[in-house]
């Protein structure tokens, strides 16, 4: 082996070592960032959902919205670019003039269009039916916002300036929506912030799969409705009285 060859080999060896050293921290970080698989810890035995009685929901009352904003660290601002995870929709029947008021949020579909269109799998549905956005792999393409029939999603348009809460990480440039207060569900609160806050108890949280649960019993007794039932999405949020 001549001197040049030796030099060349040393150079290649050095370059490989440098590349390796540069890559190792990244590989290690991937290990650290590896989050819990969606199936872990939650079970498809449950199907969490909400039942909303629109006959109890009062026009002008915004308690559920305020509670959601407080619980999840949202600003509560309602500009064109602000996040709104839940909103009150006021309805007027075009023929009769009858009015209804109801809260609208992510409907936690069994077949969510947002999950279908997401190019990275950031939009996903947990085994227990809660539809979420994985903020680690959301690229902010907003295709889910185009696909959602309920306009339930928002993009974080600007810096959050440390307004985030420990249990509800958010991210500039990522899409977000109602998580069905999964942090509360996971720690066994058995309710959501909106349901807790409603003075009329118009929002009932529960397990659609558990026949002993209030929500399942009510659904078995009274006529209820899915919004845009024609789309066949089998929503986890149901409405009565409309």
């Amino acid at each position: 082996m001549n001197q040049f060859e030796q030099y060349r080999r040393r150079f290649i060896g050095g370059a490989l070592a440098a590349a390796g050293a540069a890559l190792v921290p990244g590989v290690m970080l991937i290990e650290v960032a590896h989050s819990r698989a969606p199936e872990e810890g939650v079970s498809s035995k449950h199907r969490w959902g909400l039942l909303i009685d629109t006959t109890k929901c009062a026009t002008g009352c915004n308690e559920c919205v305020t509670a959601c904003n407080t619980e999840n660290g949202l600003s509560g601002k309602t500009g064109l670019q602000d996040s709104q995870w839940i909103r009150k929709v006021e309805l007027t029947n075009n023929k009769t003039g009858a009015t209804h008021s109801l809260p609208m949020m992510c409907q936690h579909c069994e077949h969510p269009p947002c999950v279908d269109v997401c190019p990275t799998g950031a939009s996903f549905k947990r085994a227990d039916g809660i539809v979420l956005v994985d903020r680690h792999i959301c690229i902010g393409c907003r295709y889910c916002m185009m696909a959602c029939p309920y306009k339930a999603r928002s993009l974080v348009h600007e810096d959050l300036n440390d307004t985030q809460l420990a249990h509800m990480p958010r991210g500039k440039g990522c899409v977000e929506s109602c998580t069905l207060c999964m942090h509360k569900v996971d720690r066994g609160d058995g309710t959501t912030a909106c349901a807790e806050a409603c003075p009329e108890k118009a929002i009932v949280f529960g397990d659609l799969n558990d026949p002993g649960c209030e929500i399942a019993q009510r659904l078995a007794t009274y006529a209820s409705k899915e919004v845009r039932a024609d789309l066949g999405l089998n929503t986890g949020v149901r409405y009565t009285g409309i």
Partner: peptide, 14 residues
């Protein structure tokens, strides 16, 4: 159109 046959109004510009 979330509720056909109804006029919708909300803070989210429905």
């Amino acid at each position: 159109e979330l509720f056909p046959g109804f006029t919708e109004k909300s803070s989210f510009f429905d």
